[in-house]
């Protein structure tokens, strides 16, 4: 009887830790990474960034050319 009680207590204890195990698995975008789709996002973001930078460079050059014109 005593051992049976102890056994059931142990079982309850083990079971109560199970949700804890489940919580340790924090959901990250692993699927995206495993099937390579994350690279699509990176490509899009990098293109946007690059586009903005190129536009900024062109503005910079335009200002420079006006500055040169004014100096003459």
């Amino acid at each position: 009887m005593q051992t049976k009680k102890l056994f059931s207590l142990l079982l309850v204890m083990i079971l109560s830790t199970l949700p804890g195990f489940a919580q340790d698995q924090i959901e990250m975008a692993d699927l995206m990474r495993s099937n390579g789709k994350i690279y699509v996002v990176v490509a899009v973001a990098a293109t946007v960034m690059l586009g903005l930078i190129i536009y900024l460079i062109s503005i910079d050059r335009k200002v420079s050319s006006i500055e040169k014109k004014l100096k003459k």
Binding site: I26, M28, A29, A45, M49, L50
Partner: peptide, 25 residues
């Protein structure tokens, strides 16, 4: 500036981050 920003947008998505509850990605 350009190099660092390009590094940010690529590594910002691809780099390893610690897995945390609520915050996730």
């Amino acid at each position: 500036c350009i190099i660092l920003l390009m590094y940010t947008v690529t590594m910002g998505f691809l780099g390893d981050v610690p897995a945390m509850a609520i915050l996730n990605e």
